[in-house]
Simulated assay, not measured.
Amino acid sequence: MLELEPRTIACVVGARPNFVKIAPIIRAISARKGLVARLIHTGQHYDVAMNAVFFDELGIPLPDVNLEVGSGTGTEQTARIMLGMESELSNKTPDLLLVVGDVNSTVASALVAAKLRIPIAHVEAGLRSKDRSMPEEINRLITDRLSDLLFTTEHSAVDNLIGEGVSPGRIVFVGNVMIDTLHACLHRAAPARETLTEIGVAPAIAEDVASRGFALVTLHRPSNVDDPDKLALLLEALARIAQKIPLVFPLHPRTGSMIESADLGGFLRSSPIIVAPPLSYLRAIGLMREARFVVTDSGGVQEETTALGTPCLTVRNSTERPITIEQGTNLLVATLDELNAAVDDILDNGGKKGRIPPLWDGRAAERIAEEIDAFLAHERLPLPA
C-alpha cells in the first residue's frame, strides 16, 4: 500500500501563556500516525531565559523557527509577526495552522494563513468578555472569524460563536488544554516554602508563611497597571491586605516597569508584600495550589484556580471565562471595596467553593488531535469560496 506523506500542523506560540496551552497539543499531534507538528515561536515574549525555563518544564521541543519579533506597540508587533509568518508559511506551507489563545501572535498568524488559503484551527475559540476596549477581545473576534476549526473550552463559547453566525459544524467542544498541562505537571510543582526561599525569603520566614497561609497576586492588564493613579490605589489596597495575610507578588515585566516609571515602588517597600521576579510554571502552580486565595487579572489563572479549588478574586469588570464564575472558584471584584470585602469573606469563611467544569479532564489535546486528523483526512469542512 502506498504510504501517504505526513500532514504538517504548524503550531504557533508567542507569549508564555501559549506555551502552557501548546505543550499537550504538540504531544497529542505527535502521537498520531500521519501527523507532524512544526512549532513556530514568534518571539512576542522575548525573555530568552524565561522562555527556556518554560520549554524545559513543559517538555516542549525547541521551536523549528523563532521569528524574534520582540516588543513594540500592539500594531507594530502584529505587523512584524505578519511579515515573518508570511515568509515562513510561504516557504514551508503546512496543511493546517493551529493557534491558541488571544495574543497578538494568534491574530497575526491567522490573518496570514487566511490570505494564503491555509486552513486554521483556533484553540480557546468563542471566549468573549464583551469588552472591546481589551485588545485581546479584538484578537478573539478576528481569529474566530477566520478559523475553520473552532475548539472551545466551555459551552458559553459555543453559544457565542453560534450567536455570531458561525456554522455549528465548525465548532467542537473539546475542554481545556490548560488543565491538561496542570494535570501533567502538578506532581512536579514546587512547594511554596521552596519557592519563597529561592526568591530570597529567609528559610524560617518562608516556612512560617507557607505553614500559616498566604495569598498570591498576579496583575498585568493595561486596565489595571497603565494608569498610575489607578495602579497607586491598587498597590495601596494590596498593602492593606498584606497586613492581614502575607501576599506573594511576582511582578510581571509590564507591571514592574509601570511601578518604576510612576515611582510607586514605595508602596511595595513599605509593606510586608513579598515581591518576586516572574516565576516558572512549576513554581507558579505550586504557589497557586497552596495559596489561601489568588488576586489576579489573568484569564488563565482564573481557570487554573478553578481546577485547583483555590478561591480567585479577579480584578476586572468582566471575564471572557464565565464558567469560572458560574461553576468555579472565581469572583469578579470590580472595585477596591469589593476586593476588600471578598478578602475578608475568604479569611473569615473560606471563600467561594466550586466544581470542575465538564471536559476539564486532562484529555482536551487528545480530542483536538483527533478532530484535526479527521478534518485533514476527509476535508469535511472545505474552505469558503
Rank of each mutant, 00 (worst) to 15 (best):
1 M>C: 02
6 P>Y: 08
7 R>S: 03
8 T>H: 08
14 G>E: 12
30 S>K: 03
30 S>N: 12
33 K>P: 06
35 L>P: 04
36 V>Q: 11
40 I>E: 05
41 H>I: 11
45 H>K: 12
47 D>H: 11
50 M>P: 10
61 P>N: 10
70 G>V: 13
72 G>E: 13
72 G>W: 12
75 T>M: 13
77 Q>W: 10
86 E>F: 01
94 P>Y: 01
104 N>V: 07
108 A>R: 07
110 A>Y: 06
111 L>F: 02
114 A>D: 06
116 L>A: 02
118 I>Y: 00
118 I>N: 00
124 E>Y: 05
125 A>D: 04
140 R>I: 01
152 T>R: 08
163 G>A: 10
166 V>Y: 11
171 I>L: 06
171 I>E: 11
173 F>G: 02
176 N>T: 01
178 M>D: 02
189 A>R: 12
190 A>F: 08
197 T>I: 00
209 V>M: 09
224 N>G: 11
228 P>L: 06
236 E>I: 00
244 K>H: 14
260 E>L: 06
261 S>A: 13
265 G>R: 08
270 S>E: 15
271 S>W: 07
271 S>F: 06
279 L>M: 02
290 E>A: 14
290 E>S: 14
291 A>N: 05
296 T>N: 03
304 E>Y: 09
311 P>R: 09
316 R>K: 12
322 P>Y: 12
331 L>K: 15
334 A>F: 05
335 T>I: 06
335 T>M: 04
338 E>T: 01
348 D>R: 13
348 D>Q: 13
349 N>Y: 12
358 P>Q: 14
359 L>W: 10
361 D>A: 04
366 E>R: 04
374 A>R: 15
